[in-house]
Simulated assay, not measured.
Amino acid sequence: MAADFPKPVIHGGTGKRERENTGNNLLDFSASLNPLPPEFTWSCASADLAIYPDNEYHRLKECIARIFHRDRDEICVGNGSIELIRVFCSVVLSDRKTYYAGMPTFGEYDLSARLAGAVPATSEKTADVTFACNPNNPTGDLSTRSDMLKCSRTAALHRGILFADEAFIELADPAQSVVRDAGESLFVLRSLTKSFAVPGIRFGYGFGDPDLIARIETTRPPWSVNAYAEAFALAAFDHLKDLEKSRAYIGKEREFLEMKIRDLGLQCHPSQVNYILVDCTRDAGPLCSELANRGILVRDCSSFGLPKSIRVAVRTHEENAQLMEALAACVR
């Protein structure tokens, strides 16, 4: 790899690889998924596997349009939210345009922008695209809808775009979403992966100005949403209201974890979603290794520029108790 070519972003969710490498069934707190996802029956007809998907995804987009009160031509879909980040950047940020992503945040914004040929801006007030992860990964901060709309208006002043990534917002407070406000200066990204705990089914969707959406849909690879992902998404969208129960459970378990973590003398960044950023006051690498030896995977936040921090997911109460038992043994 050339010295000036960007390196891949480090992600959590390494449980599958660790199980394959070690043969151990580890608890993966490095992947932030809904610990209490809605339960429902869904299926993919065998006949649908024998034909190509509808590359314009009429039925899927009509379902999304009905739920979110948007026009179908304002909706794009893709093979996970990261595909849409890559395609968006390819469409919007070529020819050395500028982008801004406040740190620490999801590393795919920077990587996708750089792959498209963009360069960092010094401020969101001048950037062609400002990336805003809401809730933010890894901190768990949640901006209000009014604050996000203010950022969108700031972007509009210089004909920029606010890219609002709401991949986790259904597990925080969907009332703060700007999904119904997307327009010429606002693109909103969503995902089903986190809310329904299905990282193996890659499905992301977004909302924006029809002209931008048309360019994204033309640029995205054909048939990138496969038949299984489409079938699951159509079923899942009927259960968005069931996530209210998930949010209540996450809030209760997050309080439990924060209390136990602070009892160990560690600091938690205030979170409003299903993960917690923990300041370990020391290099997090050895701690992550110690926890892995005890069957627990957590997210080393060095790649976020936070070498003394870890991010832990909020899982079931029994699993959270196991995390705390292992963490207590490692830090005392």
Rank of each mutant, 00 (worst) to 15 (best):
E83R: 11
R145C: 15
E18Q: 08
V314S: 03
G102Y: 04
N25M: 10
L212Y: 08
E217I: 00
G206M: 00
D173G: 08
S309D: 15
G305W: 06
K260P: 00
R247M: 09
A127G: 12
F237L: 11
I216M: 15
S46F: 06
S30C: 06
F131M: 06
H11S: 11
L142W: 07
I75A: 01
L266C: 10
A3H: 14
I64G: 02
I296A: 06
T126W: 10
K16R: 11
D181C: 12
L189P: 07
D279M: 10
R202M: 12
L26V: 15
L33I: 10
R145L: 15
C76V: 06
P221C: 05
L243W: 02
A313Y: 13
R247L: 09
H158L: 12
L162R: 01
R254I: 08
F237M: 05
D95R: 05
P222G: 02
R262G: 01
K7P: 00
S191N: 07
L277I: 02
A155R: 05
A156Q: 12
N320T: 05
E255S: 14
R70Y: 07
E244A: 09
T281C: 15
L186S: 08
T98N: 11
T154F: 03
I169H: 02
D181F: 12
S224V: 02
M259E: 03
R311G: 07
D48N: 13
N55I: 08
N274Y: 03
H11Y: 04
L287D: 11
Y99F: 15
L306W: 04
K260Q: 15
F168Y: 15
S46Q: 12
G140V: 14
C44I: 03
F207L: 11
A329S: 14
F40C: 11
R159F: 07
T130P: 02
V198T: 10
W223N: 15
E170M: 11
L323H: 07
F40R: 01
L26M: 14
C301Y: 03
E319Y: 09
E166T: 05
S32E: 07
F29L: 10
I261M: 08
L115R: 03
G140I: 12
F88T: 14
K252N: 06
A197I: 00
R332G: 14
L36A: 13
D48G: 01
A127V: 10
P120I: 08
T22Y: 04
C151D: 04
E244K: 01
N134V: 14
V331I: 15
S112L: 00
E18F: 07
R254Y: 09
T126V: 15
R180Q: 09
M148C: 12
T154I: 13
R247F: 01
D300S: 05
G285W: 03
K97Q: 11
R180Y: 00
S32M: 10
R262I: 01
P221E: 05
R220M: 10
V87R: 03
L306N: 02
S90W: 03
G107H: 05
A132V: 11
S289L: 06
I250H: 01
R153E: 15
Y100D: 06
D209P: 01
Y249V: 00
C76E: 08
D110F: 00
F207D: 04
E230T: 04
T144H: 14
T41L: 10
P270G: 12
L240S: 01
D283K: 12
L33A: 06
A101Q: 08
